[in-house]
Structures are given as C-alpha cells and as structure tokens.
Computed example of a mutant assay.
Amino acid sequence: MKPRPKSEKELLERAQAIAGFSLLELATEAGVRIPKNLLKNKGWIGKLLEWHLGAISKNKAQQDFEQLGIELKSIPISYSGKPLETTSICLAPLVGVHGLKWEQSHVRNKLSRILWIPVEGDKKIPLAKRLVGSPLLWSPSKEEELKLKTDWEELMEMIALGQIKHITAQYGEALQLRPKATNSRVLTNAYGTSGKLIKTLPRAFYLRTQFTDNILQSHFFT
C-alpha cells in the first residue's frame, strides 16, 4: 500500500493520477488478482483504490483518511454516467440511541467530506477492462445536509420507538436504512414495539441513487 497522503491536495492528485486507468492496470501495479466477478468480492474495487490512495483507517466509525477527515467512496456508473446502485455509508446504531444528535452521529461524520471515484459498472464490460473516472471531492451543501438530517431523524425516531421491523427502503428522500449482513444468521440487538430487546439483522445507512446522481450531475455536467 502506498503511504498515506499528507494533505487533501496530495490525495486529490493521486486520485486524478489513476483516472483513465483500467482495473487490470491498477490491480497489476498493486500485485493483486482480479476476481471473476464482484458477487462474492463486493468490496474489491474499494480496497484496490484504497491501496493506490493510501487509505489506512481501520476504524469503521472514522473516515478512510481520518487524518484528513475524508471518506473514500467508489461509485459504479453506467455509460451515461448514472449511478448503478445505492451507496453504503455505515452501520446504524439500533440500541442506545436516545439523545443521539445528527451532529454527533457516525453517518454525518462519514458524509461530511467524501472523495467520490466513479468506476465503470456496466456488467457488459469485463471487470478487468472497466475504467476509473475523474474524482470528485464533495461536502454536502446546506440543502443537501438538511435532507440527510431530516431522513436520519425520522429513521432514528422509528428505531428509538421500537419500530425497526417497520422500516423499509421506502423511507427517506436521500438517506435510507436497509439490512446489511453477510447472511441471515448474523443478528444484533434492537428494541421492539414492546420496549424489550429483540434480535434482528444489522441495518446500514445508504444514499439513494437519485441523491448521488445529483451530486455527479452538478459537478460533471453543469
């Protein structure tokens, strides 16, 4: 892995330097094999980019470049530049949430500054031939943060009231809450409507594709 960048400028320059390269070229330099597909290697592209950019944070509550306050997110895009899937941000707390404020939340910390790296994601393109796009350093505008905060507060209120099993992906204009686990046997604690602890799948916050599409459109196409 390359040494961690000492400044935001250095990080952005590294990201710009790998733009236009294929995943095969980047994997060859890193000395790693390309998987046949991403079905069982969903985080492979992110790890490859981390190697090239020098991300070393292992604390999931902190940003990938904790010393710079920047999170790294690869985003698969179509031929037309549209995001192909929602973006996972972090796990959601399901217990001990009373009194938790948006300003102190892990998800806000992750969303405060993101280095977006678009990667070709069309399944018709072999993984090895997919190209890395130009990077984007982004922080939410006041309007974007208000949307995120509003969604977060609604979702956290439902969690606090024991309504975790009633939350679906339909909730949230920008931020949604969905199950996130390697398999259905991975369970965690949450509160049910009776106020007693129950077992349920872990949940994570995701950015909707419409939200990330607006970010890309406003930066690259305006």
Rank of each mutant, 00 (worst) to 15 (best):
L48K: 04
S139W: 11
L146H: 11
M1K: 09
A181T: 13
I117S: 06
I70M: 01
K129Y: 12
Q62K: 12
L38V: 04
Y206G: 03
P135C: 02
Y191T: 05
N189L: 10
D213K: 07
P179A: 07
W152M: 11
K36C: 08
W44N: 07
A92L: 06
I159Q: 00
Q67R: 02
Y79S: 08
L177R: 07
P3A: 15
K82I: 13
A160R: 06
I159A: 00
L115W: 11
I75F: 13
A92M: 09
E120H: 00
V95F: 10
G195P: 10
S78D: 15
R185F: 14
Q62Y: 03
A92S: 03
N214H: 09
A204L: 00
P83S: 01
G96R: 09
Q176H: 10
L100H: 12
W51V: 08
I114G: 11
G43S: 09
Q210A: 00
P140I: 04
L216H: 03
K2S: 12
R130C: 10
S105I: 04
S74W: 01
F220Y: 15
H219K: 03
L131A: 15
N214S: 10
E103C: 06
R178P: 07
K180I: 09
T188G: 06
V32F: 06
Q163E: 15
S184L: 07
L115T: 10
W51K: 13
L23M: 05
E144F: 04
P35C: 02
V97N: 05
Q62G: 03
G20Q: 15
V32Q: 03
I45K: 00
L100Q: 14
G192M: 08
T87L: 08
E10T: 11
K129D: 15
R130F: 07
P93L: 02
E8Y: 01
K110I: 10
W44Y: 15
L49V: 10
I75N: 13
L161Q: 10
L12S: 05
L127R: 02
S78H: 06
I77C: 03
Q63H: 14
K124E: 15
R178L: 15
T87I: 06
M158S: 12
K123V: 07
R33S: 15
L115G: 08
K9P: 09
K180W: 12
L175M: 11
F65N: 00
